[in-house]
Amino acid sequence: MKGFFHFNFGVNLPNEISPRENLSRFLISKKQFSKTKNLVKPSAFLPPKNLHLSVFRTENLPNKTIWEIGLHKVVNRMNPPRTFYARADFLAAIAISLQLQIVSDNKPIRHANIVGWPEEKSKRKEITLEIAADSNLKLNPLKYQTNQ
């Protein structure tokens, strides 16, 4: 039970999220990114009906640990099982600059929701274009055999 379960995921994280923190959104649909263009598609950042966009606070975590969080805290909890393709990394500052708020709930640990989305879908789409443009695509090395 060493490794993942032994790792301190950061219980002592401050509740308030710094603009300089890195956030990750885990992607389990091929349609949310383009491997050939090396980009995350804007639709990956559109929130569901409750207007809570699920992200994880991944600042200062080793790359391997971030993948483990995605696998154990998100993908493995899904029914039916899913393929874990990639993640989108971006700075909290991007969401904050677009008048969104990031609310940490630690359920599961390091989880947060991006809230404060406009009612109009067209405005939400515009925001997602900005986040997508400033995010980095990371392909899951277990899926794509990359050197990340």
């Binding site: 804007p42 109009e120 879908k121 067209s122 405005k123 789409k125 515009e126 274009l129 900005e130």
Partner: peptide, 15 residues
Amino acid sequence: VTYAGLFSFNKVNGE
């Protein structure tokens, strides 16, 4: 149809 565009620093959206 609902649209949004990003053209460098200019943005548009609408229906």
